[in-house]
Design a protein around this nucleic acid. Structure first.
Lengths: 195, 195
DNA sequence: CGAATTATATAGTGATCAGTACGGAACACA
DNA sequence: TGTGTTCCGTACTGATCACTATATAATTCG
């Protein structure tokens, strides 16, 4: 057993609460006061357990990406490149309109534009976004090696395209797009995919 | 001539400076201190000339949209729906990577996620974003009436798709995508367009 | 039971936030 | 030259920002 007074709150539960606030409002628009209220703890507990606002955000981001990368892996595991993209985008439409979560992708709304002081956070979020593109490119490279995609398809361009659709869907849903709207978009987007 | 001491700064020049800061950092991440510094004026002059931070942002947004809607109209004036989309997206790629401007679309980065106090601003930006989709839908409806697009294409879905690409490109460029990257995306995206 | 350790709540820190009170300066007009 | 009007810069407002000093409560170990 650890010595000293035991922590009176569940660290993971509190992190999830913080995640939700950051997810909904973004990094800079979220104050410590809002965080502590949502987490049900006082500032000293927050700082003792998570470091500071930036460190807390990064830990929340880790948690967010953790769940997201599971979905990406599941999608990429589909037998064909097209099926992988189809699953990724359709599941994305579901997730972005999940009534129990903020209607957005935290990798898009978390810190897209920001003041100079938050540039490192913004870059961190951007590099997490880039992971999707990388996963797609690798999947497409594999597909080309397997003959699933023809040799004259460029995996990098195609990956950028699919990532653009995914991130664009995040913007659409922030503007009030419904699940059906997103699924319509996916339908059209898939037409660009090499047969 | 107006009575009283004349204004010592150019209102439009100052507004352009404010626009640039809002464009780069977004509404909430921008402070009055940063604005007054960029505009070369003191807070009382800002408040006398523009009202308050929110009113200034809305006026900057108007100015931004003004320029943008010219480009949209030019694109929509192309002889075919496909040519319209092609021009819109290719010009968009140029604009998003213009070295003399922030590398982003203000309608995406201006206020995507925000705190509760800024919700009205966020909604205003979203409604400006929706204008692109509307312009596209109307252009596609015309194209269908002219026989340029077949009757079984849904103008609304196609418009949502193109808007999603455009907004997705904004996110890509925020993550460091180059002009060539964006043009590659446009190339792929156009394949989804009905022949 | 102390002593050591760690978490807690209260109540602050200086800095910055958006916005303004105020007195003087620059103009048009009488 | 005087008067009214508008803008200017300085210096400030209370509120909120991220963060913390301090004292106390709760635990383990000797």
């Amino acid at each position: 057993m650890a010595v000293g007074r035991p922590r009176a709150f569940d660290r993971e539960e509190a992190l999830d609460k913080a995640l939700e606030v950051f997810w909904r409002q973004g990094y800079e628009a979220t104050s410590i006061a809002e965080l502590t209220k949502a987490m049900g703890i006082n500032p000293p507990s927050l700082y003792a357990a998570f470091g500071n606002k930036e460190a807390l955000f990064r830990q929340a981001l880790d948690r967010y990406v953790e769940k997201g990368s599971v979905r990406i892996r599941e999608a990429m595991a589909q037998p064909t490149a097209r099926a992988a993209v189809e699953k990724l985008l359709r599941d994305g439409a579901d997730r972005l309109t999940d009534p129990t979560c903020p209607h957005s992708c935290m990798l898009v709304t978390g810190a897209l534009a920001c003041s100079e002081e938050a540039e490192e956070v913004r870059d961190e979020v951007a590099s997490r976004r880039a992971m999707l593109e990388t996963a797609l490119r690798e999947r497409f490279e594999r597909a080309r090696a397997e003959g699933d995609l023809s040799d004259n398809t460029d995996p990098a361009s195609l990956a950028r395209y699919v990532a653009t659709i995914a991130h664009g869907m995040s913007v659409q849903v922030a503007g009030g797009a419904t699940r059906k709207d997103l699924l319509d978009i996916v339908e059209v987007a898939l037409k660009a995919f090499p047969a």
